[in-house]
Design a protein around this nucleic acid. Structure first.
Lengths: 202, 202
DNA sequence: GTCTATATCCCGATAGAC
DNA sequence: GTCTATCGGGATATAGAC
């Protein structure tokens, strides 16, 4: 890392990357809603206008953080799921991981789903999401043989995982000793139930 | 409604209520993220500081809009569900209504779930939510006899409904002829599947 | 008790110098 | 590629008119 002092004229070789990680820090400390380009700039000791050389605006930087969030997500939870030989167990492990990610990496999860970021506007974000949806897709294909049945099972499981994550972050399980694990286990169980009754889905 | 022209000195008898409905309008037109106290004030022809006589800040006004959102939600979808004699069908109708509300009253739904509003800080919001969770609770109690089984079924169905709503708003079903009904039907079906396999849940 | 006027501070965004 | 300067807008606090 190069100079951040006020005397420094130029920053370093990779302001772009530095901004992404500074943004992630700010968001972790103060929440997505209170994140600002200006604050990220201040931390790096650069002018508030410096980010505009790398990002068209606040949303574009947020999108870059979102890409990072999906990478962390994948690195942290896809390996754990792939251990299970049974596709139903694998799917349940994915749902569990999804909820754990929400609970353990709350700020990153909020960038993805609570920041109001319109992912459709950013193809990079969609691309970063793909390994995750592919993991779901692989399991449901193995379970259903593909087609419409696969699609509706995937939809159901993703919805269940997301819904439990949201309820966790909403504080619905705050009376539990370990809210994160509680929600994660529930999502896994619901997934198993959906797998068992998949012929009813579509 | 009283005068809104620039010449007017006072506004009317109920600035508080006027602010809530103006806020709902602004949000409908420009989205929750772009909502501001100043914009709502401008529409009513009052000074930017006027709202502070009724609300401590932006979040407090947003909370009032959230209460309104839950009222609309209840008025619009609870009656439809209560028609069904079978508790499983009733639960499925609730899930369907939940997703329809998200799709048809998107701005209000976003106030509830996409505005970053911390509902725990506002007891009024929690109270306004109660009729809705009671409706879910009544169905699951009828199906399971209450207790932990009721709680986990309720959790699963709410998560499924919320998850499908979120995927709908995320554009996942945009290639469908009627995305709202498509998502609503899926949520209803998933609910029926969860009811059928409820002994696996908890 | 309700609203206006005003002033400060922070943020997003742009233009032009180095 | 970065800085300085600047504009417009929103949040917020205070003082005062009615």
């Amino acid at each position: 890392m190069a100079r951040a002092g006020k005397g420094g004229r130029y920053h370093h070789g990779d302001l772009r990357a530095a901004l992404v990680s500074a943004a992630a820090e700010v968001i972790a400390e103060r929440g997505v809603r209170n994140f600002s380009l200006a604050e990220a700039s201040r931390r790096l000791g650069v002018a508030v206008s410096a980010p505009y050389a790398h990002f068209a605006g606040r949303d574009e930087l947020l999108a870059a953080v979102a890409v990072h969030a999906y990478e962390v997500f994948g690195a942290e939870f896809l390996p754990a799921a792939s251990q299970y030989p049974d596709p139903g167990d694998r799917l349940a492990a994915l749902a569990r991981g999804y909820v754990r990610f929400a609970g353990r990496q709350r700020p990153l999860f909020e960038v993805l789903f609570g920041s109001g970021l319109d992912k459709c506007r950013f193809p990079e974000v969609k691309a970063a999401e793909k390994p995750l949806s592919d993991a779901f897709g692989e399991c449901v294909d193995a379970l259903t043989g593909g087609g419409a049945a696969a699609e509706s099972l995937a939809s159901a499981v993703e919805a269940a995982a997301h819904g439990h994550a949201m309820m966790l972050l909403d504080g619905e399980y705050s009376e539990q000793p370990d809210p994160v694990e509680f929600a994660a286990e529930r999502a896994a169980r619901v997934t198993q139930a959906l797998v068992a009754s998949r012929q009813l889905l579509g």
